[in-house]
Computed example of a mutant assay.
Amino acid sequence: MADIWVKVLEPADSYALLTLEEAKTILGISAGDTSEDDQIKMWIDQYSDVVATMCNRVFAKEKVQETWRGDLMPFDSPRLFLTHYPVADDDIESVESPRGSIINAAAYEIENGSGKLRIEGAWSEPITVIYTGGYALPDGAPDTLKAATGLLIQGARSEMTTTAVSGIKSISHRESRVQFMEGGGQSSGGGGALSKAADTVNALLYKYMRFHV
């Protein structure tokens, strides 16, 4: 397994996979209703991070410097799998092998969608790549990532609503009424809305997961 060091040179402005407007549309909240905006913004940040963590990658577009050592040449694979992708052809600023020795752009090619960089000819470690990769978030996030984040937010909101009202009982006598919690306020049915969304989210995210090579 390669030893990869990543230094962020220009961090992203946003790591959110949904806009506030998109999240409210998913939740069925009108644009004019701002009563839950702060809560929804928090969920967007939280569950965008959850999705990125599940996929073992950063989706936001950043400029990074990656240094690769270890399981590289003279072994059998003259390829690097860059950590921030997709990567456009002109978003690769430089490839050095070793550091300080520039590899001519004609000697390598990038598979844009996967970030796979193939280098022709002889080269040695460490190899350093400076490039910009990822999605311009939140607008540029793929619909699948938006859907997964939206499902998690829907689940969180549903569970919050359920927790607030489940188990509440009341006894009334004339003008008096007493409310109390029954059963600790826990809902039944083998898992809440958030946990029930997990299988669908996992299925949606599989093709976006990054596996170490």
Rank of each mutant, 00 (worst) to 15 (best):
I4C: 02
C55K: 10
W5A: 01
V178T: 15
S14P: 03
M73D: 11
E10S: 10
A60R: 03
E182C: 01
C55F: 09
E36K: 13
G185W: 04
T161S: 05
G183Q: 06
K41C: 00
E120Q: 11
R174D: 08
S114F: 12
A31D: 13
Q186L: 00
S14E: 10
G184M: 00
H212C: 05
N112Q: 11
T53F: 05
M54T: 10
D45N: 06
L145T: 14
T149P: 11
S195Y: 15
L80A: 08
Q39Y: 15
P138H: 08
K7Y: 12
K146C: 03
M209S: 14
Y47T: 03
W123P: 10
L82I: 13
A16V: 03
G183C: 05
Q46N: 09
G189C: 02
K24Q: 06
K146Q: 06
Y135S: 02
E22N: 07
G70C: 01
E21S: 08
T144S: 11
L117V: 09
T163K: 10
G190E: 14
T34Q: 13
T83Y: 10
T67W: 03
N56A: 06
A164S: 12
G184H: 12
L152K: 09
A193G: 11
A136T: 15
F211C: 06
A203K: 14
M42G: 07
S97C: 07
A60W: 06
K196G: 00
M181F: 07
I103R: 04
S166R: 12
I92V: 13
D45K: 07
Q46I: 11
T83D: 08
D139F: 10
S48D: 03
L152W: 07
G100H: 05
L9G: 09
K116H: 07
E36Y: 09
T162N: 08
A16R: 09
M54P: 02
M181H: 05
F75Q: 11
D45R: 06
